[in-house]
C-alpha cells in the first residue's frame, strides 16, 4: 500500500497528471527498484552522488554498490541495508517514475523528502495513513456527527478495491453529479447508526468490477455480472460492520441493490470520485 500513499501525495501536489500516476502504479510491479533510488530514500546518498556513480558505471564494469563502496559513499552496512529493502513497494513506484522520465532523480528526492516531512511514510498504519489523506481532500463538515465514520468508510472502501479488485485507486475529486446512465450499486446499514453506501459506474467499469471481484470471465452485463458487483459492495460493507462491531456499534446489513440510473436518498450525501486503471467509480454515502 505504500506506493498508494506516495502516488496520492504526488497527485495531490499536482506534481504529475492522473494518467501518469496511474500508468506508473500499474507498471511498478515489473520494476525492481535500483540501489540509487533506495540510497536517496534512506538518506545515504544525494541525487548528485547517485548521478556520479551512474556516470562512473558507464566507464567502469562494476555494479552500483561496488562503485559506491570504492568511492567511500556507502559503508558495507549501508549497502547491506539497501539490498535488504530492494523490494520496497513505494520505491518501486518511485523507480517507475524515474524510468518513465516523469521525474528526475532530484525531483523524486524532493518529493520523498516532502512526503516524509508530512509524516505520511513508515510512521502510521495503512488505515491511518489513507484516512489522513482523505481528510485533507474531503471536507466533510465537522458538525456532522458521523464525520469520522465517513472517513473510515472511504478508507476501507479504497483498501477493499486494492484487495478485491487488484487496482490502485486514486481519489480524484469530491464533486459528483447524478447520471441516469450509470449503474447504481447500493446497500444500507442500520442499527446504532445509519449509513447508506453506494457506488456508481458506467457499463464498462461495472463489468470490470464484476470480472475482477468474481475472478470469472464475464463478457456482458448479465445476472452474474450485476450480482458480482453487488457482492463486492456487500463484502466490503460486511467488513465495515465488523470494524464497527469491534467499536461497540452494531449494524445490520440490508440486501444490496444494483440498478441503473437510481437516485440516492438521505439528508446529507458525500461523494468521492475514485480513479482506477479501468475507469472511474463514484462512491456516494449518506446518513439517516
Amino acid at each position: 500500500m505504500f506506493s498508494q500513499f506516495f502516488a496520492q501525495y504526488i497527485l495531490n501536489q499536482g506534481l504529475l497528471t492522473p494518467s501518469q500516476v496511474q500508468e506508473a502504479l500499474e507498471s511498478r510491479r515489473a520494476v525492481q527498484v535500483k540501489l540509487g533510488v533506495l540510497a536517496i530514500n534512506q538518506g545515504f546518498l544525494t541525487a548528485e552522488q547517485v548521478e556520479e556513480i551512474h556516470s562512473l558505471q558507464q566507464r567502469i564494469d562494476k555494479r552500483f554498490g561496488e562503485i559506491a563502496l570504492d568511492e567511500g559513499y556507502l559503508s558495507e552496512d549501508q549497502l547491506i541495508t539497501l539490498l535488504d529493502t530492494q523490494d520496497n513497494d513505494h520505491l518501486n513506484f518511485g523507480q517507475t517514475l524515474v524510468d518513465k522520465g516523469y521525474m528526475t532523480l532530484r525531483q523524486l528526492e524532493n518529493a520523498l523528502e516532502e512526503y516524509k516531512l508530512e509524516g505520511s511514510l513508515d510512521q502510521q498504519s495503512d488505515a491511518a495513513c489513507i484516512k489522513e489523506q482523505i481528510r485533507t481532500q474531503l471536507k466533510i463538515p465537522q458538525d456532522d456527527k458521523n464525520v469520522e465514520l465517513y472517513y473510515d468508510y472511504i478508507s476501507l472502501f479504497l483498501r477493499a478495491m486494492v484487495r478485491f479488485l487488484d487496482t490502485s485507486p486514486l481519489l480524484a475529486a469530491i464533486t459528483y453529479e447524478h447520471d441516469s446512465n450509470q449503474w447504481f450499486v447500493s446497500q444500507s446499514m442500520t442499527g446504532d447508526i445509519t449509513l447508506h453506501s453506494s457506488f456508481t459506474a458506467e457499463d464498462s467499469v461495472l463489468l470490470e468490477v464484476a470480472c475482477r471481484y468474481s475472478g470469472e470471465k464475464i463478457c456482458e452485463l448479465d445476472e452474474l455480472a450485476v450480482d458480482s458487483a453487488g457482492e463486492f459492495l456487500n463484502v466490503t460493507n460486511g467488513l465495515f460492520c465488523i470494524n464497527l462491531s469491534n467499536m461497540g456499534l452494531d449494524l445490520d446489513l440490508h440486501p444490496q441493490r444494483v440498478t441503473k440510473g437510481a437516485a440516492f436518498r438521505g439528508k446529507s450525501n458525500y461523494a468521492v470520485a475514485i480513479d482506477t486503471d479501468f475507469g472511474r467509480i463514484n462512491l456516494v454515502m449518506a446518513g439517516a
Binding site: 456487500n234 463484502v235 460493507n237 460486511g238 460492520c241 465488523i242 449494524l251
Partner: peptide, 25 residues
C-alpha cells in the same frame, strides 16, 4: 456463511445451534 461476521451475529447463530460461522470472503 456471511459477510456480516459481527460478534452479535456469531453468538446468535451459535446459540441457535449453527455448527460454525464462516466470514465472507
Amino acid at each position: 456463511l456471511s459477510s456480516t461476521g459481527t460478534a452479535a451475529n456469531l453468538l446468535e447463530a451459535l446459540k441457535l445451534g449453527a455448527i460454525d460461522f464462516i466470514q465472507k470472503p
